[in-house]
Amino acid sequence: MREIGLDDLADIATGAAILGTGGGGDPYIGRLMARAALRENGPVKLTPLAELPDDAVVLPVASMGAPTVMVEKLPAADELSNAVEALCGYLGRRPTHLACAEAGGVNSLIPVAAAARTGLPLIDADGMGRAFPELQMFVPGLYGVKASPMAMSDDKGNRAVIHTVDNHWTERLARAATVEMGGSSTTALYAMTGRQAREYMVPGTLSLCAELGALVERHRTTGDTAEAVAERLGGRVLFTGKVLDVERRTVGGFARGTARLTDGSAELRLSFQNEHLLAELDGVPVATTPDLICVLDQQTGVPVTTEGTRYGQRVTVLVAPCDPRWHTPEGLALVGPRYFGYDLDPVTT
């Protein structure tokens, strides 16, 4: 895939919902923003990681905040470019390429809109290979690329640049500023060189999203989407069954909960915090974060969000390997089961 046009947006949104592993926010607003930007500015050029020159300046952009706010207080037209401009001003350099911070949910399409608005190419990669809830969960961060300096912008034209001592501090300060900005903000962070991006970003994830979306569309009536998706992602189908029970509560600003599934004999228990993080088959962990635990509607293959999971749905659960760098000790410290409060070792898929 060499460029992203209007016809690609629906597939990318579906694929992003799969890699969103139940979280990542509704891609609808992102899709509308990308569509509006593409209509005005034409298709966005997509640069494969391998073609990125060493001295390129790559800048990931992302929305931050509560999905409930994002569907009500829509962004201002210049909010995306304001975040980019603010960081350029601070760095004294202009980016040559934009990038996706995460591949899942709403943040797979916000950068498409930003690229169309700024006229910059987008790289075919992201920093997570999936969706995660906090900004320090970023593969290049494992190799010393800093989120800081990070720029933020809001609907009113406020711009903030945060210069911090580490990525955890960036997350804390940015989260607090986002609440003050009214619960949502646009961010530009993790500026890196072309060489760093080539080595550390997760390659090919935008074209992967498009491919997965097309796959779901093709298999919509055949009932074997999950198998096809699992095969494409190098994973396997874990379970097919009916949702027996869903329990949700909000802890520390995150929607946590569990869903119990049955196929008549065995029972699969899914634990989630925005994203699906743990799957236990009859009490035995069979898949854990950082691997991707994806839940698809059994009949249509459409991904089911943790918010939309409810009693009686018939779903197929599949697990797919994450980027292998998440399985290093440094990676697991950031996104392993223990970080999310589950006292167990990660299962390798």
Partner: peptide, 9 residues
């Protein structure tokens, strides 16, 4: 009613 927010859509 929402300016400067919402102008993107």
């Amino acid at each position: 009613l929402g300016l400067p927010a919402t102008s993107a859509l």
